[in-house]
Design a protein around this nucleic acid. Structure first.
Length: 422
RNA sequence: GUGGACGUAGCUCAGUUGGUUAGAGUCCCAGAUUGUGAUUCUGGUUGUCGGGGGUUCGAGUCCCCUCGUCCACCCCA
């Protein structure tokens, strides 16, 4: 035991008992994305390190200390992707998808961040995300949020809170940043240690501080909103109106900021109190400057990403029923002749009913032991095939789940029909 | 990166102030029932007590180091 290999810290296996919940989530998401006309983009997990530095920001925690970065045989610095947006923009530019065009895209897959693992946070984790390019108005912001609301609802999740804010344009943000620094410097000694450190590196993040003392102080701080021009104000109001039209409740949180540098204008988060310290389940916003920053022509963009593990944990916490993926039918046999008939019979059933999950018993043994395995498999029905049944071209169909155990004899010709409804 | 809790059978856990051969439940296998499961009864298999070092006549138990897991900080989805 002690000298077995172990997985790398924070890199987890998903076992069959859980994988059907993952598959179900992925299927649901694919349906919702398709319902809004979004197309899948499949992106590599490895990129040139410089891409992430340029897009996420040189001084963000992700880039400074959380990336899995290494030098390859040619001496190039490569990194496992810590998020999906940078790759998506890179691919869009590389293949000419973004120039003077509208694109609605989604992606799914593993992301990598070198953080200490804890509840809902792993070094390899999985995100689903959408990105929409070439649309500047609040209507597309409304669309991607509505899409997220529909997805969360379809997954059976409840009691989520949508928080909304606007960071304004780059110019507005620069103006606000100066005002905020000026304010914070006046109260520097009252700030908590983390906020003092952030004051110069990333002052907007101070707004996010968990320190009650700092939060109390921030009540007096200048508001980003007050720096808005007419355009910013109109966009944010249009967004709120659009959400209200769809009956999507949002609560404006002027302290909501994002950890990645590329966000501008609209930002939002779906949060929960059910997952301990990891409250954010899905988050995103507008990033109108990023495409240009990565070498493309100025292109408005908006998107979000959600953490698959967090969605699954939340489903669990809220007792959302998820399919187990267990067998529906388990076929038992007794004797060599019955084994051969059973083998042919279940193959015919798989031809006729491709959706049916049917397990053929292997390895022999007493009928009692076979039925025990049938029961453990989770199957609704057991099929029993012995010499007598083979001679009569029939099969015993035994119900394993009904409160009153029932059993019937059916000819092979009627079996398809009996199993079709499972 | 910082802090705290915890590592005993495949799984969930007990194990007294340090004392002989480390336990329970579950799971698995066999039998009671030569063709009827999930209930019952009987029997059986399963251990580097995370690893290494130290203290001691004696360590699962105490000390140190180390690895791992979990939770929180930080950060984020």
């Amino acid at each position: 035991m002690a000298n077995l290999f172990q997985s790398v810290r924070g890199f987890n296996d998903v076992l069959p008992a859980n994988s059907s919940a993952w598959q179900q989530l992925q299927r649901t998401a694919e349906q919702v994305f398709a319902a809004y006309g979004y197309g899948e983009i499949r992106l590599p997990m490895l990129e040139h390190t410089a891409l992430f530095k340029r897009s996420i920001g040189e001084v963000t925690d992700i880039v400074e200390k959380e990336m899995f970065t290494f030098t390859d045989r040619e001496g190039d610095s490569l990194s496992l992707r810590p998020e999906g947006t940078a790759s998506c923009v890179r691919a869009g530019l590389e293949h000419g998808l973004l120039h003077n065009q509208q694109q609605r895209l989604w992606y799914a897959g593993p992301m990598f961040r070198h953080e200490r693992p804890q509840a809902g946070r792993y070094r390899q984790f999985h995100q689903l995300g959408v990105e929409a390019y070439g649309m500047a108005g609040p209507d597309i912001d409304v669309e991607v949020i509505a899409l997220s609301a529909r997805l969360l609802k379809r997954l059976g999740l409840r009691e989520l809170r949508l928080e909304l804010n606007s960071l304004g344009s780059a110019a507005v943000r620069a103006q606000y940043r100066a005002a905020l620094i000026e304010f914070l410097q006046r109260h520097e000694s009252s700030l908590d240690a983390d906020s003092q450190r952030r004051l110069h590196s990333n002052p907007l993040r101070v707004l996010d501080s968990k320190s009650p003392q700092t939060q109390a102080l921030l009540a007096e701080a200048p508001l980003l909103r007050d720096c808005f021009g007419d355009a910013e104000r109109a966009h944010f109001e249009g967004l709120q109106q659009g959400l209200a039209d769809l009956g999507i409740e949002a609560c404006v949180n002027p302290r909501l900021v994002r950890g990645l540098d590329y966000y501008t204008s609209t930002v939002f988060e779906w949060t929960t109190t059910a997952l301990g310290a990891q409250g954010t389940v899905l988050a995103g916003g507008r990033y109108d400057g990023l495409v240009e920053q990565l070498g493309g022509s100025a292109t408005p963009a908006v998107g979000w990403a959600c953490g698959v593990e967090r969605l699954l944990l939340l489903q669990q916490a809220q007792n959302v029923p998820v399919p187990g993926g267990e067998a529906q039918v388990y076929c038992c046999w007794l004797g060599e002749a019955a084994q051969r008939s059973a083998s042919q019979l279940v193959e015919r059933l798989r031809d006729a009913l491709p959706q049916l999950r049917i397990v053929l018993h292997a390895g022999g043994g007493k009928l009692a032991a076979q039925l025990k395995r049938a029961d453990r498999s989770g199957a609704q029905l057991a099929l029993i095939l012995g010499d007598a049944e083979v001679a009569a071209q029939s099969v015993q169909v035994k119900s394993l789940r009904a409160s009153e155990a029932t059993q019937e004899i059916l000819p092979w010709s009627e079996l398809d029909q009996r199993l079709a409804g499972l």
